[in-house]
Design a protein around this nucleic acid. Structure first.
Length: 469
RNA sequence: GCCCCCAUCGUCUAGCGGUAAGGACACCACUCUUUCAAGGUGGUGACAGGGGUUCGACUCCCCUUGGGGGCGCCA
């Protein structure tokens, strides 16, 4: 671990800040001291990775990857009550799932207690803190404390507005605002990129940095994410954890893409970033919004649909198969080729992985055929005789075709010819087939559907539908 | 109560003194089509209010209002 030392950051760090011009410098490769850029994500292991935290991590990561700096992970586990190894694992998995990898070993804040205590004692000895009822309280300087926030611009507090606060409890355990500074200094963090809810902690922390004899890092406070009601996104809004969205059938890259665009935009019309490198290149701290954003699930789903149709089947299969299993269909029990077809063809009309799994299941196992689709029922009711006679004619035709003839182009041609010979529009033939095979009025092209489901099974389903008459 | 931050379509946003205020999601038409989705075309829809500054303000300044965040021996 790096020795505790005064920051080696150069002048460009100290001067940076006038939002815009100079913050921009950090994002381009014109900065000399690339390797001095060190950012961190510092969640407390409370059981899940919040999407707000995930976005903060993402911005840190993008900034580090773009600048050639380091992205570090620090677990704020000082609160023993709420911390656990499993909780830490959830965070690691969440970040990894989103493709956010960290450099160096994970730092556990709890490991630094003795150092924190020593630093507090030092502050005490030098008059920057004083004892109060057994605790150690930091003496806030009565002066203006301001900084150039890389996102928020100039932000200023009066030290006199802020109460002296405890850095060491009476049981000698250090408090959050103090350990953050101690560890950021220890880790020689150059840019603290975190949620805007920490803005009012910042003057306290700057004061400690100074008392400790350190130049404060560059601060960048990214706006918060709110729920539809405008309040801080919380559990009562439903899904707030990264894991929740995986369960909702959202691709990690779609969530990542969506999160990147909440509070930031590339200044051009790009929205769907299929290549993470493109995102890294486009990202800019200075262009991060100062206004909080509302989490819009509908747009996330749209984004997911975009990524779904960009993702090759073989990458999708491992995600779809567990969903199918959850529905009660063992993917391994069906021929692989059939599975691939069923998934692939439904990729582009689906918004979530579940959509795909459900549609695929219908095509692979007749027990998943819908029985309660309103539109399908209406279609049948509208013209019962036409529906069944059409199905019978279709069955006659299709049962006469062998496997070799069972090809999409041929199927379509044959069915069109049938419609013509019967003197009806194609939909009079097509829709009944669709209903017989899927139980719904919606599917891929009918000839594709017949191909995906296969000759034998298709015929069986049509016959079964006729029998139901 | 005190402190800080924020304010363009319902939502995400572009705008950086002179624009018919642009894009995306959603929504509504139309189109394509065997259905749906996708695609294409078009449409509805915003500068919170009031003062300044200026020849000219969405853009700069101030106030109001509204929203958010923070004020623990929590993190």
């Amino acid at each position: 671990m790096a020795a505790l030392c005064v920051s080696v950051r150069g002048d460009e760090e100290g001067q940076r800040g006038q939002r815009g011009q100079q913050a921009q410098t950090a994002n381009t490769h014109t900065t000399m001291a690339h390797d001095s850029i060190r950012v961190r994500f510092a969640p407390s292991p409370t059981g899940y990775l919040h999407v707000g935290g995930a976005r903060t991590a993402l911005f840190n990561w993008l900034f580090a990857r773009q600048s050639g700096g380091k992205f570090l992970l620090r677990i704020e586990d000082t609160d023993r009550e709420r911390s656990s190894d499993e909780h830490t694992q959830v965070i690691r998995d969440g970040l990894t799932g989103l493709g956010l990898d960290w450099d160096e070993d994970i730092v556990f804040q709890g490991a630094g207690i003795e150092r924190h205590q020593k630093m507090a004692d030092d502050l005490l000895a030098r008059g920057h803190a004083y004892e109060d009822d057994g605790a150690v309280r930091f003496r806030m300087p009565h002066e203006e404390i301001a900084w150039e926030d890389a996102v928020g611009g100039h932000i200023s507090f009066q030290g006199s507005d802020i109460q002296d606060w405890i850095i060491l409890r009476s049981d000698r355990t250090p408090t959050y605002n103090f350990t953050v500074v101690a560890d950021d200094a220890e880790m020689t963090i150059s840019h603290v990129i975190r949620g805007a809810d920490h803005i009012s902690n910042t003057p306290k922390q700057i004061a400690v940095f100074r008392a400790l004899g350190h130049e404060p890092p560059v601060f960048a406070h990214v706006p918060m994410i709110h729920g539809p009601d405008g309040h801080k996104l919380s559990k009562r809004h439903g899904a707030t954890a990264v894991g929740d969205y995986q369960n909702l059938g959202i691709l990690p890259e779609a969530l990542r893409n969506f999160l990147a665009l909440l509070g930031w935009n590339p200044k051009d019309e790009r929205e769907v970033f299929s290549d993470i490198h493109e995102l890294i290149q486009a990202f800019s701290l200075a262009d991060v919004q100062r206004k909080s954003a509302i989490f819009d699930l509908t747009k996330l789903e749209w984004m997911n649909g975009q990524h779904l149709s960009l993702t090759p089947v073989d990458q999708l299969l491992p995600l779809v198969e567990p969903e199918m299993k959850r529905l009660g269909l063992d993917a391994e029990s069906v021929p692989h080729e059939k599975l691939v077809k069923a998934v692939d063809i439904n990729r582009e009309r689906a918004r979530t992985i579940m959509d795909i799994a459900e549609r695929a299941a219908v095509r692979l196992d007749s027990s998943f055929i819908k029985t309660d689709d309103e539109k399908a029922q209406k279609l049948i009711a509208k013209d019962r005789d036409g529906f069944y006679s059409s199905l019978e004619a279709t069955y006659q035709l299709l049962s006469g075709m062998d496997d070799a003839a069972w090809q999409p182009e041929n199927l379509e041609q044959q069915l069109r010819d049938l419609a013509e010979s019967l003197g009806v529009g194609p939909s009079k033939i097509f829709q009944p087939i669709r209903v017989a095979i899927t139980g719904t009025t919606v599917s891929e092209g009918i000839h594709i559907l017949l191909d995906v489901v296969g000759r034998e099974e298709s015929l069986a389903r049509i016959q079964a539908a006729i029998r139901r008459d």
